[in-house]
Design a binder for these strands. Sequence first.
RNA 1: GGUCCGGUAGCUCAGCUGGAUAGAGCGGCAGCCUUCUAAGCUGUAGGUCAUUGGUUCGAAUCCAAUCCGGAUCACCA
Length: 613
Amino acid sequence: MDIISQIKENTKKAISELYQHEIQPNDILVNETKPEFEGDYTVVLFSFVKTLKKSPDALGNELGGLLIIKYPTLFSGFNIIKGFLNLSVADGYWASFLQNNYSINEFGQKEKTNQKVMVEYSSPNTNKPLHLGHLRNNFLGWSISAIYKANGYDTVKTCIANDRGIHICKSMIAWQLFANGATPETTGTKGDHFVGDYYVRFGSEYKKQVEGLQATGMSKEEAEKEAPIMKAAQQMLIDWEAGNPAVIALWKKMNSWVYAGFEETYKKIGSDFDKTYYESDTYLLGKKLVQYGLEQKVFFKKEDGSVWIDLTADGLDEKIVQRKDGTAVYITQDIGLAVNKYEEYHCDESIYVVGDEQNYHFKVLKLICQKLKIPAADHIFHLSYGMVELPTGRMKTREGNVVDADDIVDEMIHEAERKTKEQGKTEGFTDEELKDLYEMIGIGGLKFFLLRVDPKKRMLFNTEESIDLHGYTATFIQYAHARIKSILRKERESGVETLESRIGDQESGVSCKESNRDKPGINFLLPLEKKLIINLEKYPAIIEQACQDMSPSLIASYAFDLAKNFNSFYAEHSIAKAETPDKKELRLQIAQLTATTLKNSMALLGIKVPERM
RNA sequence: GGUCCGGUAGCUCAGCUGGAUAGAGCGGCAGCCUUCUAAGCUGUAGGUCAUUGGUUCGAAUCCAAUCCGGAUCACCA
């Protein structure tokens, strides 16, 4: 049990014993003691003062007194300031925590829960390349899945390819009209970018046609409807749903280009999926469910043939679920997908990582699923994240105000290379090792930058800041890790007294010798030593919190804090030349567990950490 | 207009199930490499926590109103 839970539990027992008054451990507020006061953890007494009819001082004295008598291995002292009971935790407790954990490579990993959770993320449209917004989505989804895994869940990572619909037809029409048979191969263009170019081309042509029609006296609204290229796209969607072979063939060809491009990007950024769904498969099931919903009277048909659901009783509006021409709308396929997912995996929870611009959509989707009595309906959760904005404003593909995913990834890696060369510390690295290091720093930096902000909040992406390698960045943490590894390596190499027996071997998992918690060097912790151990002890609780809040930013913030504490410690105390052999051992253990924890926490963000840099 | 989300240091963000004098990073200023990697460390300046009321022992945190910003309310996805 973590220390805070133990304090709550023991305080509850003490209050019960002293005053025959029962409270829940979770009603007790325990904080870390502010640095300006003596003690490690603080119990806030105010809330009990009234019910127990005691003065804060009396209450604190009685409570603190009993706690150190009953739990002498846990508490070494206390003091009371105003209504705060500051408890000092015994150094022996920290020493034994360290002993028990420093050689555990998977420190923080929770027991299996037998719960299965699905995380859908990425959800690309197959008509244009990925941009910065997709990257936030991908990193978030991947990380959430990793965090669930660390909490003992089985996870299924899925991707839904929005591979059909009017937007795809737009790229297709534009290619037919303007490409003269060009392909990614003939032009030497990455497939997703190639197709995206035609999507943009559609937009400009459409605009031209609308303006042309308006010049003939047509209203803007009418012109937008009547523009030939738009009508052609709409006709193409109908042909597609009818299975027109030529249209299907073109569609397959263009999508295959896009997938090849996506694959390259996913591989580079480390996104992977256990299952990819295709809207072109799920929309049919969606349409079946529309029929079912009509029979069940969940949906109703309007005179023109379009199908709707009335959600006014739930405080929403009427929502269309199928067009009058019988084609599926966006939500149609999502209903099918929800059923598909459940039938295939029977997950306990189904998370959709999708931008907050779709909050309304998911509210409606969940309601519809519930009304259709789809088994998984109640377990649909929309992990809504904020948009990524640029200093120049919101990203809009058609206006060219976008940061392309491939471009920014390459830029980050190049910057990492440039800065690394500038540092000049990579003598003896092979070309392969250098390439790995540049990617670790570059891609890690990008991931950290996008994940360090609370997912719910929209964020500003400033390129200057994102390529910074100082301060609150992945590089800072990677650097701390590399420094620790360097120390451990040297100790192992020079190990007169076989270091494996002392610090263990992380790779082989060989463990330590028996407890030496009674050694004097370990029972007098210096402030910076203790601070680090306290910091390390928190890690399992942080993993739980990050899962509950579905927030990788908590992990980022924790890892940074730990690295920072280590750096302060490193600057102040020598590990290799510690005052005594016991101190050296203690510090090696702290260093090792810190390295493990930095590595594990960064892994939850999808960020690798180097042995040297 | 309805609904939802947000407003904390010059900038980017933590803190929000109410608790001690509101914290980081960047940027500014001043220091630290004969010592385990200076991609680092230390110190310092910088705040009406949008505004106004309320709830109470105590409010950045909860409630209400107002102001400002954003999202959404499509036979787009």
